[in-house]
Design a protein around this nucleic acid. Structure first.
Lengths: 222, 222
DNA sequence: CATCAATGTGCCACTGAGTGGCATACGCGC
DNA sequence: GCGCGTATGCCACTCAGTGGCACATTGATG
């Protein structure tokens, strides 16, 4: 009410969600969870959007106000992670100067992982990953999303770092290397989910360091 | 006229194509060229398959016997290159022992490029690449195809090379690095087609060698 | 408490990609 | 010329995704 400068609010933003917003988030989350469940049970192709929408009691028209495609809804976990990654890259401390971009990006991804891995995110991510591996169109959409994320991250790097030559390919390549390593980590994690995704990712980064010199020994005879 | 045994043909495999095969190839090529033309003119989304099929005087049903999707037809140039890459990787000499896989794969890709770059392949590839950059669904399908190709190549590496640990991530990472570098090369080539794609690729490989150590200097203040 | 604006949602009709099935026409060997 | 296999055309169908409009819910205002 008053615009008079009273004591500044210190901890009120707890229930600032306008109730309207909460319903939206609940609906969205319900769509994600239900789709993961149905797709995992019966396969991506065997579930129609009408069925999914009926299960959540939402019209198909509404579905497309939340997600851009049938594939999109089941990739929410991965997308959350990458959006967090972009956020961290945008705001976090850049660390010691002149450290390789590769290491900077690796740390950024690990930080994003720590921030994302909560509740049953791991469970959802696992279901999502398995679906992606079985569903070509989901794989395609996922790779495309990764690519856009990489471009966005590259723009951030150019904004926050002093990169003399704007056409230098190496920052982009460093980003791609980290993404490739993380994809490897996701795969190994999916088949051995006992270790944390974070641990698998660190392992993949280690492998990355010596990937360029890995020798090609012909089989059998020389 | 005469079926009498004259001197045996020394270079006869020139027209061994059973005539039927030639029509198929002509139709296929016509579909590719026409789609590149129409999509480039008016945009991927503004051209329906019915229009394309009418232009080539082919039924939609037939179209899908040649290509798996609307996106697929306009990506033929890139796919030709990667299929050649797989073929070279499958058959070519592996070079000196214990050379890094990374270099082996780089050479393989350059060989495939030499073998593919003919006629107006470059022209087609350029149109295709520009379309991919403007069309999200084509980009997605292209990345997916690359991913499958990489997996296939990895299988070939495991077959032809002596890789002690089948779970070692480094061969896969080396492959991904080469693919990433080539994508960079494609992009720079598309904006500067005066140099050959081969030259751009070599440059990207050079950048790749020092990408891991590229320093991240914070902008302005340290 | 009545009302109004904004926004989220439902419904309906529509386009267009992609598929299955069956009849037909063409290329090829006999 | 005659059958055989294969490529093609045609038709009807499913389903993802879009546009438009009418309706309900939220939250603010008098």
């Amino acid at each position: 009410m008053s615009t008079a400068p009273g004591p500044p609010d210190l901890s009120p933003p707890l229930p600032p969600l306008p109730l309207r917003e909460r319903k939206k988030r609940r609906t969205r989350q319900l769509l994600v969870d239900t789709s993961l469940e149905l797709f995992t049970e019966r396969g991506f192709g065997k579930v129609t959007l009408d069925e999914l929408c009926d299960s959540v009691e939402v019209s198909k028209r509404t579905f497309f106000r939340y997600f851009s495609s049938k594939e999109d809804v089941a990739m929410a976990p991965t997308q959350d992670l990458w959006l967090t990654f972009l956020d961290v890259l945008d705001t976090a401390d850049l660390g010691p100067a002149d450290r390789p971009v590769l290491l900077l990006v690796q740390d950024t991804l690990l930080t994003a992982l720590d921030r994302t891995t909560t509740d049953d995110w791991a469970h959802r991510a696992l279901l999502s990953h398995n679906l992606i591996e079985q569903t070509p169109s989901m794989d395609a959409h996922g790779l495309h999303f990764c690519d856009r994320t990489t471009r966005s991250a590259l723009a951030t790097l150019h904004r926050r770092l002093d990169i003399p030559d704007p056409a230098d390919l190496r920052p982009r390549l460093a980003l791609d290397m980290v993404v490739a390593a993380f994809h490897c980590a996701l795969t190994t994690w999916a088949s051995t989910p006992t270790d944390s995704l974070s641990a698998h990712t660190r392992q993949a980064f280690t492998a990355l360091a010596s990937a360029a010199t890995f020798p090609a020994t012909p089989r059998g005879d020389g």
